[in-house]
Write a protein that binds this DNA or RNA. Sequence first.
DNA 1: ATGCTGTAGTTAAGAGCTTAACTATTGCCT
DNA 2: AGGCAATAGTTAAGCTCTTAACTACAGCAT
Lengths: 358, 358
Amino acid sequence: MPTLQDVAQRAGVSTATVSKVLSNTPYFTEETRRKVMAAVDELGYVPNLAARALAAGKTHIVAVVFPYVYEPIFSDPLTLRILGGIESVITQHGYNMLLSTPRLVPDAPDEHYLQLIRSGYLDGMIAIDNVPGVSAVQPAREKALPAVVIGYGTREGDYWVRSDDFSGGEQIMTHVLELGHREIGLITVPENINMALEYRLEGMQSVCEARGIDFERLPRAHGDFSTESGARCAADLLARHRELTALLCLNDRMAMGAIQQARLMGRHIPRDLTVTGYDGIPAAASFAPPLTTIDQGAPDIGQTAARMLFDVLEGATPDSLVVPVSLIHGETTARPCPVPDHDPASISPSTRKEDPSP
Amino acid sequence: MPTLQDVAQRAGVSTATVSKVLSNTPYFTEETRRKVMAAVDELGYVPNLAARALAAGKTHIVAVVFPYVYEPIFSDPLTLRILGGIESVITQHGYNMLLSTPRLVPDAPDEHYLQLIRSGYLDGMIAIDNVPGVSAVQPAREKALPAVVIGYGTREGDYWVRSDDFSGGEQIMTHVLELGHREIGLITVPENINMALEYRLEGMQSVCEARGIDFERLPRAHGDFSTESGARCAADLLARHRELTALLCLNDRMAMGAIQQARLMGRHIPRDLTVTGYDGIPAAASFAPPLTTIDQGAPDIGQTAARMLFDVLEGATPDSLVVPVSLIHGETTARPCPVPDHDPASISPSTRKEDPSP
DNA sequence: ATGCTGTAGTTAAGAGCTTAACTATTGCCT
DNA sequence: AGGCAATAGTTAAGCTCTTAACTACAGCAT
């Protein structure tokens, strides 16, 4: 591989001049540029990034951090969409994206991750941080590495982007309440493992309280984000609370599991049971029937976070941002049906999609 | 940030000794190691990766290359699963993963991508290469950068991992034929844009020919991998060929779209129409009904590719590998129903899940 | 003429690490 | 005692680039 030296020699100038030409630092003639570029082309010179990084202290590498906490991140479609958003912006800026997936456990730091952050290899980072008690950005703060947080694990002075979880909770609960449901079950995850979900719940609660409904009384089941857990939770809730006419699920995958389970138990969706999701993953739209859910605008979150990071790298101090969400009207919600007798043995033949009954 | 020098000084030894201790090169006493490690801890020393890369010519960075070709890669759930498999192995080895997504277009190389490959920043790469005419690994070959290809875009001497697409095609076609279907429609993508799909088709063809069925005669529609395109293709095929009793889709997303569309057209799945997918993405399992499809073993492919790369980096010459696939028996396939009159207006009320008719 | 400014290019000092080549010491064999 | 091998550690060169400091010189106002 040819080096700067080789190029300089061939062009008949010094290495400093070549470096200037390549980085567009002023003070060289058009003639010189031509000579240098010719030499670069002839030799097929490509700068060595390690040397450049060492000399200039800039690597042009940005870390994208998706911590493994309670959930294997690679099973969440949302991850991919956020990643896609981030990627488009990073690529535009000519940077490279290092994907890091530390195993975060309270009081047991991921040494490899810490080394990476402290190694000077990174110009900045974008981290998902939604779990209380463990932080992916903390090491970046310590090293004063420019960082943007996606989520709630932030401190004063951090730059962050968040989905408007509170509003999402409000919107979905409002939708369900306005359809007339009062006997509502919640499929969520254990307390305090994800702050985004906490805010969704708070949004739901605020709507309930405004309408005089005791949110705390609504039966809950705790899953782990997975489809299977959604099915399990639905089985549990529907068995224990036969009066339920709606299940609000805190993510789409659990909602899809819940729907399948409800069907097995003889419920038609949405006629006998309203089910909602949250996230707006692609599978929710192609589900049958399409899920009523909240679109988080995942690619937008990724793009926004990346843009913000580049602002910071350029010395600006961008404002942190809440990304709005929107309700997707699918076909899994309907008015509650007037107290049917849910005996699984007596599924009537009329359990078909379009029910023309009054 | 403290440097090697600082550590050496504090430990009262030379930088060379510190370097040896840290890299476990022989010839130092336990006593020396203790002193060095103490100094490292006290100073919180972390080696500068750029300097290390420059001096040693090793960066401990592996590129994972998912080219954008005909399809935005971030909308394919399979991507995420392969990525997850790769990630687990790379992390185990203490390497870092640089995610690169070049825009590959014939005769218009992605300059930024080329620079990255040639920049000496990478110790190796894993690339998905399934599209004829454009190659993600080619630059790696030119630079003699250790590489493992996932897919068919290989040359003599390349290391590769492939899913057994031919067998997958055979399995799914055999399954459908054995159920008794003869009027079969194919939902695929345009010719020559993806070699993996070509082999799936060839597998299907071989089975047909062995049974005296003229594969070329089967009606086809061409989508673009997306759910929506699957719906469009199904609409087209079912309208033009009312005799069809089965639709074989070359990926799961198109299958899900096809199923939704078929339902809109009054077909019950699987009673009136058998539909199959391919890939075994998570959404296929949580679909209603669960898709009959081929499990590609995506995480396994990723892991295998990564392991193979590390073998190469250690100087071994691993054997390239075909990863077996398996048929997932979902609930979207059934025996063909004896020539029903598919008038959308006359959906009978008995269109329910369990049909106890003889 | 003198001094100043601005431009074009060079020199050389790092940036922080690895490693080949070297020195020094010890233990062991004959 | 002499020679050799193995061990422990040091010295210093080198990896490739950036950049501050410098030289050289033309153009211009005073």
